[in-house]
């Protein structure tokens, strides 16, 4: 396998809050164009893992490399590296005092210092693509949760990141909105975006993932392509986890 394809590489990652060990030794490599879906019970460390990949949390052991460059919490180099990592949060995080378009254009203009005309064209094209062309001038409070989350995805995309990290982005939405947001993500996955997605939506995981990773207790329990993982998982833990999503009487 070609090393140039590696976007993010995690080696021996350990993370704890005080005595509480959240991530207990994780190795993970994500290649260009891959969509990796992280699943697992609440508190298994999957969201924390994503946050460590973006340098939002200090880590105790191991390393995170983006294209070979270390991602380190609190370092100056983070500002540059983070432009290559897009992150979308559960509660959207759109800035309430700016219109959708201003939210989307903030980073390209202020951080990347790109030309306004070009940024605006790209921003509008992306907003159109996720069905928000007519909402560009609206404020986040005027949008539904699903619309806000799609706008937040566009805000991350417009920076042209090498990898997108999606942290339970539909957890706060009602079912119809979940669908509209995940369709956008699925479209990205099909078009070769590199992504790590934390989700509880199993049907979506099956459709979007190239690789499914089950975490529990701060470690990777099973890692398999979706066809294998959902039909015939290797571990008992995965079987037990998947059984919680089906009902029978």
């Amino acid at each position: 396998m070609d090393n140039e394809d590696v976007v993010i590489e995690v080696k021996g990652l350990k993370k704890s809050f005080g005595e509480n060990v959240i991530i207990n030794g994780i190795d993970l490599t994500v290649r260009k164009g891959e969509t990796v879906v992280l699943i697992g019970p609440s508190g298994c460390g999957k969201s924390t893992l994503l946050r460590c990949l973006n340098g939002l949390e200090p880590i105790q052991e191991g390393s995170v490399l983006l294209h070979g460059e270390p991602v380190e919490y609190g370092k100056r180099s983070l500002y540059k590296i983070r432009q290559k990592i897009g992150m979308v949060f559960q509660d959207y995080g759109l800035f309430p005092h700016m219109t959708v378009l201003d939210n989307v254009m903030l980073a390209p203009l202020k951080v990347q210092k790109r030309a306004k005309d070009e940024v605006k064209k790209e921003a509008m094209a992306l907003l159109e693509r996720v069905g928000l062309g007519d909402k560009a001038k609206s404020y986040p409070s005027q949008l539904s949760g699903g619309q806000q989350q799609r706008a937040a995805i566009v805000r991350s995309l417009v920076v042209r990141p090498d990898i997108m990290l999606l942290d339970e982005i539909t957890a706060a939405l009602d079912p119809e909105m979940v669908h509209e947001v995940l369709n956008v993500v699925l479209d990205l996955a099909k078009n070769g975006s590199t992504m790590i997605i934390v989700t509880h939506e199993m049907a979506f995981a099956e459709a979007a993932a190239n690789r499914v990773i089950l975490m529990d207790g701060g470690v990777i329990v099973e890692e398999n392509p979706p066809e294998k993982f959902f039909k015939d998982p290797d571990t008992e833990r995965a079987k037990r986890f998947l059984s919680t999503f089906s009902y029978s009487r």
């Binding site: 973006n54 983070r82 990592i85 903030l106 951080v111 920076v159």
Partner: peptide, 17 residues
């Protein structure tokens, strides 16, 4: 809100921005 600070950080904005 903390999410806004983290969203700004993950967009690459520095402290002053």
């Amino acid at each position: 809100r903390k999410t806004h600070l983290e969203a700004a950080a993950s967009l690459g904005l520095n402290g002053f921005q």
